[in-house]
Simulated assay, not measured.
Amino acid sequence: MWGSYCEDVLEKRAPHRQAHLDGLTQQKESGVLITIGPTKDLTKVFGIYEAEDEATVRQLIEADPYWQNGIWTEYDVKEWIQAF
């Protein structure tokens, strides 16, 4: 998953950050989330999920407080083939 953050992300994410992190922790513990995080300049987010299908990943993203509150402004999901 590649996505974009809103302008002034540090300020705007503050009220939603703990709920966001709690949800990601649950996803990680369940095994569906491999890793996720922002680019150093805080303009993009990148995540790797291991799910049955794209619809599952989209449901997780769209249920996230960052998506629901406009912190993530767009996202794209691409199936990835691990070569090594």
Rank of each mutant, 00 (worst) to 15 (best):
I61Q: 03
E79R: 11
T43M: 15
V77D: 05
I36W: 10
L24F: 14
G23V: 02
L33H: 00
V77I: 14
W72G: 04
P65R: 04
E79W: 11
K28R: 12
Y66R: 07
E62S: 00
T35I: 08
V32K: 13
V9R: 09
A51I: 04
S30L: 15
V32I: 15
I61D: 01
T25R: 12
I34R: 13
E11A: 10
V45I: 14
H16T: 12
D53S: 06
E50N: 01
H16C: 04
A51E: 02
I48T: 03
V57W: 01
D64G: 12
Y66S: 04
S30W: 14
H20Q: 09
K40Q: 08
N69L: 03
T35M: 05
E62V: 03
W80Y: 14
A55V: 02
A63Y: 04
Y75I: 00
N69Q: 09
E74D: 13
V9Y: 09
L42N: 08
W72N: 03
P65E: 00
W72H: 03
T43L: 15
G23W: 05
G70K: 02
A14G: 11
Q27G: 09
N69C: 04
G70Q: 07
E62N: 01
L24W: 15
P65W: 00
I36D: 05
K28E: 13
D76A: 13
Y75N: 06
W67N: 11
G23C: 01
E7V: 02
E79S: 11
L21R: 03
R13A: 05
E52N: 10
V45P: 03
Y49G: 06
A51G: 02
Q68H: 10
P15S: 07
G37N: 08
E7Q: 00
L42S: 03
D53Q: 02
L33V: 00
G23R: 06
I61H: 00
D76T: 13
K12L: 00
T35C: 07
L33C: 02
D22L: 07
V45M: 08
G70V: 01
Q27T: 06
A63H: 07
G23A: 05
T39K: 02
R17E: 08
V32P: 09
D53H: 05
L10T: 06
D64W: 09
Q68D: 01
I48L: 13
I34C: 14
L33A: 01
R17Q: 08
P15K: 07
V45S: 13
E54L: 09
K44T: 04
G47P: 05
Q82M: 09
K40D: 11
L10G: 08
R58P: 06
K12Q: 02
R58E: 15
G70P: 01
T43Y: 13
F46I: 06
R17T: 06
L10R: 10
A55K: 08
G37Y: 01
